[in-house]
Computed example of a mutant assay.
Amino acid sequence: MSTTAALRTAPLRARAEIDLAALRANVRALRALAPGAAFMAVVKADGYGHGALPCARAAVTAGATWLGTATPEEALELRAAGLPDDIRIMCWLWTPGGPWREAVRADLDVSVSGAWALEEIIDAARQAGRPARVQLKADTGLGRNGCQPGEDWAELVGAAVRAEAEGALKVTGLWSHFACADEPRHPSIAGQLGLFREMVAYAEGRGLRPEVRHIANSPATLTLPEAHFDLVRPGVAMYGISPNPAIGTPADLGLRPVMRLAASLALVKRVRGGHGVSYGHHYTTPGETTLGLVPLGYADGIPRHASSTGPVLVEGKWRTVAGRIAMDQFVVDLGGDEPPAGAEAVLFGPGDRGEPTAEDWAQAAGTIAYEIVTRIGTRVPRVYLNESGE
């Protein structure tokens, strides 16, 4: 019996169920919105907490031809995992002295935003004895990574053209990233899109012939068909989470959340009124009641900022975190109900069985749903459902 199969039946302190059928369906739904573009499945940060390799395999099954990661280490792990050779893998967060030579040998597409990075990848390509695959990133307004327009872009493009002529590299892509695509009608969207077109035109005018031009993240894939270009890069939407409630719920967008997080109650006990609960006694029971102990805490990624506000489903009823969330556990007030120890407490899931969603926890913690799923730690086993299937 496989580990995953054993986990499905073994009693667990907690479990994060990952529905790969839902992920495959999400990929297909997103691909249908950009039928003329290739699809990059972004699996950085261990697949937004869902597991990079299982999610990558499921996405490829559903038609993804590119995978995207932040760090080169993430990309190299994927390449070593035996995915089909024709699947392209791109990584974009580099620091000086990074594993450039290994990236060249693994046929990764690497992002370059400035002269230092271009120099290091050219040197690595010469050492490896083969050309590097390089994508030039333009800062069109996000103000993070990426090359500034104007003189900086001209110098980077010129150096890349010369290196390509020498056979040291092939510029496979030109790309950028939106700052506010998750805010419908934000004025920066049109500005970034226009500047991206200008920077692409400049590079192509100097002789570069990229395979792909891309700027569309999840919200742009969902709402900005004019931004789809040759490739789209959905991240959080692939996992069934809306980039912003203002755009719509997952159901509105034709998506289904992939992760369901649950735990087994470790203890249920009756207490008197006025009983303090957890550190600091920020919650005291209003009357005689029952308390349930949920064996998850901030060491597992449950946000401490959701103390006294986080929702939990126990025996069909929404409960609320009572008092502070501790490192390994928190308490819910069961209002006199007495479920047995071992009863399931559902923190979040798709929401169609009455359970809270990751968005509900994001609202409770004052953050975004991206963070809620990504921060779930390694002490929580991932249990993969529907691993086989088209």
Rank of each mutant, 00 (worst) to 15 (best):
S2K: 14
R8K: 15
A10E: 09
R13H: 04
E17M: 11
I18L: 12
L20M: 12
R24D: 00
R24P: 01
L30T: 00
A32W: 00
A34F: 03
P35A: 05
P35E: 00
G36S: 07
G36R: 08
F39T: 01
D46M: 11
R57V: 08
A58E: 08
T61H: 07
A70R: 06
T71Q: 14
P72F: 12
E73C: 00
L76I: 05
L78E: 02
L83C: 05
G98E: 03
E119L: 09
I122A: 14
R126M: 01
A128N: 00
P131N: 00
R133C: 06
K137D: 03
K137R: 15
A138P: 05
T140N: 01
G141W: 06
L142I: 07
N145W: 05
G146M: 02
Q148P: 07
G150H: 05
V157Q: 06
R162Q: 15
A165D: 14
L169T: 11
L174G: 09
C180H: 15
E183S: 09
A190S: 12
M199N: 08
E204M: 00
G207F: 08
R209M: 10
E211V: 14
V212F: 09
V212K: 14
R213Y: 14
P219Q: 11
P219F: 07
T221N: 07
L222F: 04
E226R: 06
H228Q: 02
H228S: 01
F229C: 08
Y239D: 12
I241H: 11
P243M: 09
G248M: 00
A251D: 08
D252Y: 07
V258G: 05
L265R: 06
V268K: 11
R270F: 03
G276Q: 10
S278H: 14
H281S: 13
T285Q: 04
P286F: 09
E288C: 08
L291V: 13
L291N: 10
L293F: 08
V294C: 03
A299P: 07
R304A: 15
H305I: 12
G310C: 10
P311T: 03
L313Q: 02
V314M: 13
V314T: 14
E315W: 08
V321P: 12
G323V: 04
R324F: 10
A326W: 11
M327V: 07
D328M: 11
V331E: 03
V332D: 06
V332P: 01
D333K: 03
D333F: 04
V346N: 01
F348L: 08
E359T: 14
Q363V: 15
E371M: 09
V373I: 15
R375E: 08
R382C: 01
